[in-house]
Design a binder for these strands. Structure first.
Lengths: 139, 139
DNA sequence: TATTACCCTACTTATTTAGTAGAGTTTTCA
DNA sequence: TGAAAACTCTACTAAATAAGTAGGGTAATA
């Protein structure tokens, strides 16, 4: 299951990506528009800022804005920050690799064999999509 | 993350698939060989039996055995039984569809757009793999 | 300089996962 | 026949994670 954190984070990024310019948007505006608990959204946006996707401006007229163009924001990176590893098991993870303590040999492990393919296929999708690609582009 | 239930279930199926014949294999043998808590494995095998993948024989010399040939057991079906929906959000699920109560329109939803692709790619992998395909085939 | 709005820590609640405990039932083989 | 093997089933529990709450702190701008 996709966590709410990821879901909300993606929606917030998309909301910012749909803005005409890069003027700061208040958390409250995003929260209201996307039906997200404001406090929860605060923490999500904070982690997106710390990861370099967003920047923020304090004080009156402040808010969050994208640091890069939507077509430069890859879903691979976004998903890793919001959801964590893309792989479903640590033993096939590129960025968060860990061996299984119960498995004697990865090379003959059925789970490994299957999950490697699943990881690759998911990765292909995330690499093929930028924020631009998932915007709604409505008037 | 893949749940332990799914992981153990797959390993158990693979263990049975690697048997030369279809003689019943005791739970204890599988549990020991695959490093799984026997009691937990019991419940997993039970659900695989109820779903029609396995059958069991009671009494001395009893155990579990595959009902079909490994090349007739599709990962799509196995994953749905063990792990549940393949989709990461209910609104893109084929078999467990549910609309999101916080989302006004699926057609313009970025999360929907992305997760639809992820589901399709995962589904392609699972449809392309039978139990036979993930066996280790070692001497 | 007051207000706006982000920043940060700590706590709480609900849900799911992963298992444990234990009694019960069926079957087979000696 | 009868004892043991081995599956069946229900209920309970502990740990981890997710999701959210509470509340005060801090910086920037008009």
């Amino acid at each position: 299951m996709l966590s709410k954190k990821t879901k909300y984070g993606l929606k917030a990024l998309a909301y910012l990506g749909n803005q005409k310019d890069r003027k700061p948007v208040q958390i409250s505006e995003i929260a209201e528009h996307e039906n997200i608990s404001q406090k929860f959204l605060e923490s999500i946006l904070l982690s997106l800022r710390k990861s370099g996707f967003l920047s923020s401006k304090k004080g009156k007229g402040g808010g969050y804005y994208l640091l890069k163009n939507p077509d430069q924001i890859y879903m691979t990176d976004v998903m890793r920050v919001l959801e964590g590893p893309i792989a479903m098991v640590p033993c096939v993870s590129l960025n968060f690799y860990e061996s299984c303590d119960d498995c004697p040999d990865e090379r003959t492990c059925s789970v490994h064999k299957l999950m490697l393919q699943v990881r690759d296929s998911a990765l292909a999708v995330y690499r093929n999509n930028t924020l631009q690609d998932i915007l709604c582009n409505q008037p």
